[in-house]
């Protein structure tokens, strides 16, 4: 497999302050490789440098140092733009053009002509779920509808590499499901997808690999299967029982939490032998509502990594 996206020491400094400008490092020596056909999730808290990275890859920003290559060519190369799609965060287009006109305009910029333009425009609008609104001027579009138009324009040229900056932003649950299915469909077709997000459940569903960016630095990256070792962290058992049994529950579990519906949630240790505990509880008259293993989620991992980085920086600053 060849790398679809490669960065080597990619760094971006901005100048902040009007009277006494001082440099602010938004991205710090990012070295990254995304293989062709991967769905790569670029995660990080707000202000971590995710959008800056995407803009550097699309050459909307010029790097202070380092380099980026897409499909083996320098980022920003005209031939590369022909083969990639990009959706900006909170996209905005022209108020007085309709969705159809905007997409026909962009399709012509890709070099498509005549009936091919109309066919492509109709196809991508169908793909993102825009129906009769396609002939409305974009100024009348809601945030979610504009986001869909943004996705449609990113798909116009059947891109080999697709860059999406917060693609789920502004979408309702149905829209999010739609976009998730769309990305999965693209993955099945072999398209490389590089998307930034702070919605971790989406990343968990879609990504083969993730990178975590904190304060401009890549603090972790790797396949999701390695990052989330799927280590068992314990068991959650929900039981229904009479009040006389409540006092005894603590002897079976690490924590006991009464739930609003009258049931009780027990957290068992990973080595607690759930069969034995369930059998014992049943024998004493409890009814088992559910039992689930607890494993590490991407959110746990994210909180752990971001927290550790923030803590290191705080202690470093204090030293």
């Amino acid at each position: 497999m060849s790398a679809a996206i490669e960065t080597e020491g990619l760094t971006k400094d901005f100048s902040v302050g009007f009277w006494r400008p001082r440099p602010y490092r938004a991205l710090d020596h990012l070295t990254l490789k995304v293989e062709a056909g991967e769905v790569f999730g670029f995660l990080g808290p707000n202000g971590a440098g995710k959008s800056t990275t995407l803009k550097l890859l699309m050459q909307l920003l010029y790097p202070t140092s380092g380099e980026a290559r897409i499909l083996g060519r320098p980022a920003g190369d005209a031939a590369v733009r022909q083969r990639v799609g990009f959706l900006a965060e909170n996209p905005y287009y022209y108020d007085y053009l309709t969705a159809e006109e905007l997409l026909a305009y962009f399709a012509r910029l890709f070099g498509f002509r005549g009936a091919d333009v109309d066919t492509r425009v109709a196809r991508v609008l169908d793909e993102v779920g825009i129906g009769k609104e396609r002939r409305l001027r974009l100024r009348r579009f809601s945030k979610g509808m504009t986001q869909r138009v943004g996705l449609a324009q990113a798909l116009l040229n059947d891109p080999e590499v697709l860059f999406l900056d917060e693609p789920m932003s502004g979408l309702d649950p149905l829209g999010r499901r739609h976009v998730r299915d769309l990305i999965l469909g693209l993955r099945a077709k072999g398209c490389t997808v590089f998307f930034s997000s702070h919605i971790l459940s989406d990343a968990e569903t879609l990504c083969s690999r993730v990178g975590v960016l904190v304060q401009g630095k890549l603090v972790a990256s790797g396949p999701l299967s390695e990052i989330l070792a799927f280590e068992l962290k314990g068991w959650e058992v929900v039981v229904a029982c009479g009040p006389q049994l409540h006092a005894e529950l603590a002897t079976f579990a690490r924590t006991v939490t009464p739930l609003s519906d009258g049931h009780v949630l027990l957290h068992l240790a990973p080595d607690a032998e759930p069969d034995r505990v369930v059998g014992e509880l049943t024998r004493r008259g409890a009814h088992i509502v559910s039992i689930n293993p607890v494993r590490e989620t991407l959110e746990d991992y994210f909180v752990q990594v971001v927290g550790a980085t923030a803590g290191r920086d705080t202690s470093g600053a204090g030293a």
Binding site: M58, L60, A78, R81, Q82, V84, F86, A88, N90, P91, Y92, Y93, Y94, F106, L109, F110, G111, G150, Q153
Partner: peptide, 14 residues
């Protein structure tokens, strides 16, 4: 200012 330029400059347009 409105960032509509992002859509255009990421197409094959110098």
């Amino acid at each position: 200012e409105r960032k509509s330029v992002f859509g255009l400059l990421t197409k094959p347009v110098t």
